[in-house]
Design a protein around this nucleic acid. Structure first.
Lengths: 226, 226
DNA sequence: TGCACCGCATGCGCATTCTGGTGGTCGAAG
DNA sequence: CTTCGACCACCAGAATGCGCATGCGGTGCA
């Protein structure tokens, strides 16, 4: 169970890291909003603990942006501020819970567990778009029940498209999520999508991976006629 | 029938040891939370008696961690505290029963027997994936009924893979669970898996230990056709 | 002291990915 | 409707890095 902690105060970050690790979670740390956003985008976290006051990009914005991208990972906001406005604002941008500093460690862990449990009860373990399914845990892709072998990069690309099924996903976003470092060449994406189409579309006489000219790609249920 | 008692009060620990041994159980003692967790992880116990107040790592955490790792050994919590919060919290982390000190020895034994009986009725004593079976208590591995000798490390690796059958398990996870300390070299895992494949796959012309490139490995029932 | 097990290092083989290029397609403007 | 430019699909060869296997030596246990 992997948790992302985005917190710039070094002491608190370290405390959380130690404590949560002892609780048995795998903890990734980010001290900066922009990097936190980038890490959260992968969608691999069971939970995100997010400070509001951050260098780079503040917590509100990180939160709002993630929701806008369709990433539903539960978010627990930490903040030194208090007051109704603050809280309303945070929950409004899509956070799931809210904790004002200083807080009891036990309370944090309890809330955090509750969030994880609630999310696990809701979130389906497989991403499905029409008869195309991605089992993210097992790293298995199926079309109409038959297995399709994908390479790691192919899987990462298809995963993001599936998480935002029906929406156009820019090549920049795909590069961001599915490539390491600072890859920028759109042809990288085009080449992977080309390979994907062969495996998940052409082999089944389907057309679920659509090009959105000037933007990127979109994954749809192509059996729906519109 | 082997029982693990994690209790730091020396007198009580000794009493339990003597009493339970007289009842015909094999009793292992740990006086410390972290060591207790490590011993419990082997999954070889029919029951764990766990004090809440412990040095090293408290009982809640030990309990929660074990459940998180998929270890379903029944846990009986002992505590000097009382109050609803305490109890709710304990059962919430996955304990099966709860006893407040001071307690009657007869009551302890009765509850303990009930737990063992209930667990024996529910939990299968062996992990099975297809015709590959792991008897965690006896540390015995079988393929299609014939015994396969595994080294301790091999067993630990295969055990985690079996507990998460069908899912991709990262090398980092395998290192964390099956190696002591802070091992990090992925080649350690690769080498063990290589040995495992010889014993449980190649020797039987099977392919149940699959590589998930870029991630780690996956244990499947390879007789299923896809 | 002998043996089994495991850490560590190495080299090989190969799947995967990148690169650059060519030809095709789309859509807007004339 | 035609033309033009931009954008995209796809290919083939090259490069990269991952995973596999293996041997050696250390270590701990009997």
């Amino acid at each position: 169970m992997r948790i992302l902690v985005v917190e710039d105060e070094v002491d608190l970050a370290r405390t959380l890291h130690t404590g949560l690790t002892a609780e048995g979670y795998s903890v990734d740390l980010s001290h900066d909003g922009r990097q936190g956003l980038w890490m959260a985008r992968t969608g691999e976290y069971a939970l995100i603990v997010l400070d509001l006051m951050l260098p780079g990009l503040n917590g509100y914005k990180v939160c709002a942006q993630l929701r806008r991208e369709g990433i539903a990972t539960p978010i627990l906001i930490l903040t030194a501020k208090d007051g109704d406005w603050d809280q309303a604002e945070a929950l409004d941008t899509g956070a799931d819970d809210y904790l004002v500093k200083p807080f009891s460690y036990l309370v944090l862990v309890a809330r955090l567990r509750a969030l994880v449990r609630r999310a696990a009860a809701v979130a389906p373990p497989v991403l499905a778009v029409g008869d195309l399914s991605l089992d993210v845990a097992a790293r298995v892709c199926r079309r109409a029940g038959t297995r399709v072998d994908l390479t790691p990069r192919e899987f990462a690309v298809l995963e993001l498209l599936a998480r935002r099924a029906g929406q156009a996903v820019s090549k920049a976003d795909l590069l961001y999520h599915a490539w390491p470092d600072e890859a920028e060449d759109p042809n990288l994406v085009e080449a992977r999508v080309s390979a994907l189409r062969k495996k998940v579309d052409a082999a089944f006489r389907r057309r679920s991976l659509q090009t959105v000219r000037g933007i990127g790609y979109r994954l749809v249920d192509d059996r729906e006629r519109d």
